[in-house]
Computed example of a mutant assay.
Amino acid sequence: MTELPPDPNLSAPLRHLQGEPPPAPSWFRDAVAAAPEIGRIAVKGARLETFAWGERGRPGLMLLHGNGAHAGWWRFIAPYLAADYRVAALSWSGMGGSDWREAYDLDTFADEIGAVAGEAGLFEAGAPVMVGHSFGCFPMLTEAGRESGRWRGAVIVDPPIFSPERRTGRRREDGRVAPHRVYPTLEEALARFRFAPMQPCDTLYIADLIARESLREVEGGWSWRFDPSLWARLALPDRAAMVRGARCPLALVTGARSDLMRPADAAYVQSLLPPGSPRIDLPEAYHHVMVDQPLAFVAALRALLAVWPH
């Protein structure tokens, strides 16, 4: 059988742009123009990149990105929440503009949440809410399991938590780590950007923004900013136990077309949540819900936070 060539919309969504930014709608341009307060804070020897929006003294909202991503994934979401909340985001150590570590663990990532939330003033109006996407759910759940009353709630967004049936069929990684490739030009680096897991992207203006902020200039060209060895040096505890151990209310948001969080996985995660926990399934969203349906995601968060937690 002849193997079909990879779909460039999946494997290289920005390649055809040849390094040029695509046109973007006015809502996106306005959001990105609302520049965050950018800071740096040291946590256990690593300096973290932090963003914040909105006035201090408003209810706190902490936004936590996924694996290999960075705080800039929230730059077009946070301004639409900042009218009602003091919003903060960080780049995890080993990702974005934050320092890399010799070793990584969920307790340290959870410490990063608390330190950044405190520095940004999220606790000034009482207990804040966390929103964690994908990998960001794991440090969030670790932090949520520490102290009752510290957090008002935690929103789990398309988490990589799989049903028992699906877990038995997943391959384990072999632990090998390949260093990042150096691309001679920014155009060539952008052409290699893709989502993980791969998915279609109709919002190329968002993909272009986050791809540019995922790169750094190095000797010989451009390379990715995240630490490629992070997962080889990070162990995760039982994921179901992390959900059950949370000491604040939980809500679940999923992408209806997600290939990571499939319907059986979403049903399994929902079964782990306390009875009555909210569940929102975003139509036409894949795993990266803030990229696929950004305004629907904003609307869902606004509606959820207006009535929950009680």
Rank of each mutant, 00 (worst) to 15 (best):
R233T: 05
A251R: 02
V269T: 07
R257Q: 05
A251E: 04
H180F: 02
A240R: 14
Q199P: 06
L234K: 07
D238V: 01
Y268W: 10
I206Y: 06
F193Y: 12
T185Y: 00
S223V: 00
G255T: 07
S229M: 04
P200G: 04
L190V: 09
R181K: 14
A240I: 14
Y268I: 10
V269A: 05
G245S: 08
A264D: 14
L230C: 08
A241C: 12
M261T: 15
S277M: 13
G255S: 02
R262W: 13
M261C: 14
D259P: 07
F226G: 05
S277V: 12
R257S: 12
E187K: 08
Q199A: 05
E219D: 15
Y268H: 10
R225G: 01
V253A: 14
A241P: 08
I210A: 02
A240Y: 03
A266C: 06
V218F: 05
L250H: 01
L272D: 02
V253L: 11
V218I: 12
S271W: 08
A266G: 05
R239Y: 13
W224H: 06
Y205D: 01
Y183C: 03
A241G: 09
S258D: 10
I206K: 01
G221Y: 07
S271I: 03
I210W: 02
H180C: 10
R262N: 09
A211Y: 11
A191Y: 14
W222N: 04
Y268S: 07
L234E: 03
A235T: 08
P237T: 12
L186G: 02
R194C: 03
P263R: 13
P249G: 01
M242K: 04
D265W: 02
L252T: 00
H180I: 07
A189W: 03
L215K: 07
M261P: 13
E217L: 03
G276Q: 04
P237M: 03
G245I: 01
A211F: 02
D227V: 00
P263T: 07
P184K: 11
R233L: 15
S229Y: 12
E188A: 14
L252S: 01
A267Q: 10
C201F: 01
P275L: 06
F193L: 08
A241S: 13
A264R: 14
S277F: 15
M242Y: 04
L252Q: 06
W231Q: 15
P184C: 11
F195W: 09
E219K: 15
Q199N: 05
V253C: 11
R247Y: 04
T203S: 12
R194H: 10
T203L: 15
R262T: 09
G276F: 04
P263Q: 09
A207W: 08
P275F: 12
A267N: 10
R244I: 00
A191I: 15
P263L: 13
I206F: 00
P275A: 11
R257G: 01
A232V: 05
L186W: 00
L186P: 04
L209V: 06
D259T: 11
L260D: 07
P197I: 13
P249T: 06
W222I: 00
R225P: 02
R212P: 03
R194N: 14
L252Y: 00
T203A: 14
R194D: 15
A235K: 10
P184V: 14
I210P: 00
R225S: 08
